[in-house]
Amino acid sequence: MLSRNERTVLFSKYEDIFQCPICRNAMTLVNQKSFICSNNHCFDLNKKGYVNLLTHSLKTKYDKAMFEARKAISAKGFFEPLLDRICVMMASEQLLTDSQSPIKILDAGCGEGSHLTYTLQKLIEKADREVFGVGIDIAKEGITIASRGVSDTVWCVGDLAKSPFSDKSFHFILNILSPANYSEFHRMLDDEGMVVKVIPERKYLQELRAILYKQSDRSIYSNEHTIEHFKRNFNLVDFQHVQYRVTMEHEDIEKLVHMTPLSWGAPAELVQQALAKNKLEITFDFSIMLGRK
């Protein structure tokens, strides 16, 4: 885990990417502990290494147990084929080699930070320039876990509808299995920047869905509207499909059930049926959309 001082150095180095989520004015890091704008709106750096930029407190269904389960699933490598493909797509863009200034990547809806941390590690190996990452999520529980990491990454609690970042701050915006705010993405994205949007495909976790939603419409998933909405907001540069199957043992299945919102609306007895499985072949099925302004 980076020390608080090391995190503060990062916040200070990149303070120009921040803007006040209340009045939209630029913010300055004062006394190495607080972001303050010209209207004296103040946001303190947390002792755990992140900054909370929410304008009011929010409760979400995403609790600590869910994020811990997601982190455990990520640590087992179950998302690596997806993330490896994303890294290949990003590395093929000239953005990574065109200049000596740092490449800035925002993970919008970063959860507990595993996806961004892995992606940064891979891109740093491929890029000819510095790569810097920022993760934002509305759930404090996720950011608290993310800030335990050792990577040189800035973590923020914040609302995408009132994004606390300046215009044209980022070269890439990642949006992986998470809600989007495309008007804010447009504003924050560099003119030559790209949005990387990952959505679940029809067979994503189909084996789990079949247990939790037997003979129900929710056992089938469609993302047509999500794809069309993306195309209305960005020029689609690339579209790739990633599908693979993994064998999960009982412990992994438990973590999978706890990490996915699929279990929220399912009858309790069907959730217990899923949790009782000793082994399951699980399908991971995604589409990756790469878009420009």
Rank of each mutant, 00 (worst) to 15 (best):
G135Y: 01
L106A: 00
T8G: 07
K293P: 00
K231M: 05
Q215N: 13
S263L: 04
K255Q: 11
E93G: 08
H56R: 10
N31Q: 14
E112W: 06
F239H: 14
R187H: 12
I138Y: 07
T153K: 03
S57T: 07
V154P: 06
C110S: 14
T226R: 06
R187F: 11
F185I: 07
S151T: 12
R209M: 13
F78I: 05
E184Q: 10
S222T: 09
G109H: 07
E254A: 13
D152F: 10
Q121W: 03
S216K: 11
D63R: 05
I17E: 12
E130R: 01
M90I: 01
A266P: 09
H41D: 09
G109M: 05
V196S: 03
I199N: 10
F165E: 13
M27K: 11
F170H: 00
H115K: 00
K76R: 07
E201V: 12
K71N: 09
C156V: 05
H258Q: 13
I220H: 15
R7W: 09
K104M: 02
N52F: 04
E224G: 00
L10N: 12
T97F: 10
H56D: 08
S12I: 06
K126Q: 07
L205K: 02
L290M: 15
K203C: 14
N223V: 11
V257I: 04
D252K: 13
K71W: 10
G142V: 13
R245L: 13
P179S: 08
L290I: 15
E68A: 14
T260F: 15
A91I: 01
L123Y: 00
N233Y: 01
F284G: 00
A276C: 10
L174N: 00
P179Q: 11
L45A: 10
Q100V: 10
D190F: 06
R4D: 12
S99H: 02
A75E: 06
E269W: 08
A65R: 10
K104P: 00
S34Y: 05
D63G: 06
Y118I: 03
S74H: 01
F165S: 08
A146I: 04
K47R: 12
I103E: 02
G133F: 15
K33Y: 09
I36R: 10
T8Q: 06
A108P: 02
E130P: 01
S57I: 03
N278P: 11
H229K: 15
A139R: 01
T97H: 08
K231H: 04
M289E: 09
D63T: 06
L120I: 11
